[in-house]
Amino acid sequence: MWQSVQGALTPYIFSPLTVLSCLFFVALYGLGAWRLWQAGRGPSPWRIASFLLGVLLCYAVMHTQFDYYARFMFFMHRLQHLVLHHLGAFLIALANPIPVFMAAFGRWRLPGLAMAWRPLRRILFDPVVATVLFVGLIFFWLWPAVHFDAMLSLPRYELMNASMLVDGVIFWLVILDPRDPQKAGTSGFGVRFMMLLGALFPQILLGAYITFSPPGLYDVYSVCGRAWPIDPATDQVLGGVFTWIPPAMMTVLGALVVLRLYLHYDNQRG
């Protein structure tokens, strides 16, 4: 029993980048949360749970035996990206981690880092840029020729997964930002609804396209061998459905959170 658990948790290919970045952000979050508690402004337990669960899910799909199946089965790959780009990223962003990360630095100000971060944040957190990147990356990595190469080259594969996670977190940070847009100058709730709509339809179209295309759209899985014998057509249909329906559901969840925030601030203003 223990051996099979150990086997399942062993990464298919050890990635120092994945381990170090997960450890770094969890440690940074822990330090920030501790400092905020000291000041009596600690994050709520459900936000902490949301952050840790999000990181844990992303780690699990990138650095356990799950990753083996994601490399050799198209639909498992789609599930992996569903976690990285939607579910895991959503949970991380829902935790509102940026203030906690900032608190980790305490009184230690880094003017250089802040200077470099500000324009980058302005570009990446721009609603149009965030939406185009969010949808664009899905299409980019699913472009058959690009997808083929990404599945063959280890550095490209790591870049693909890292970019999906980072981009997912940015998009959901814009959508789920709990501050009052009028005071914080963040994207308004109407803009956020438009972002969700803008991201929803291309994903539905792409998912439906993959589902209803003749099999063989992503033949890298035939060329490299599948993890277990499965009809290539079934693999593609499942992958298409996982590109189509769960992301659409995550969009609805996002819209519910935005609606709740809108009502909250609307009530406050009376």
């Binding site: 302005r122 570009i123 721009d126 149009v128 840029v129 185009v132 990147l133 980019f140 020729a145 690009v146």
Partner: peptide
């Protein structure tokens, strides 16, 4: 203009890598 510039930059990076 800022949005357009950013989008152009991103499109260029994607094109070059593809």
């Amino acid at each position: 203009p800022r949005t357009m510039k950013s989008l152009l930059l991103i499109a260029c990076v994607m094109l070059i890598s593809a």
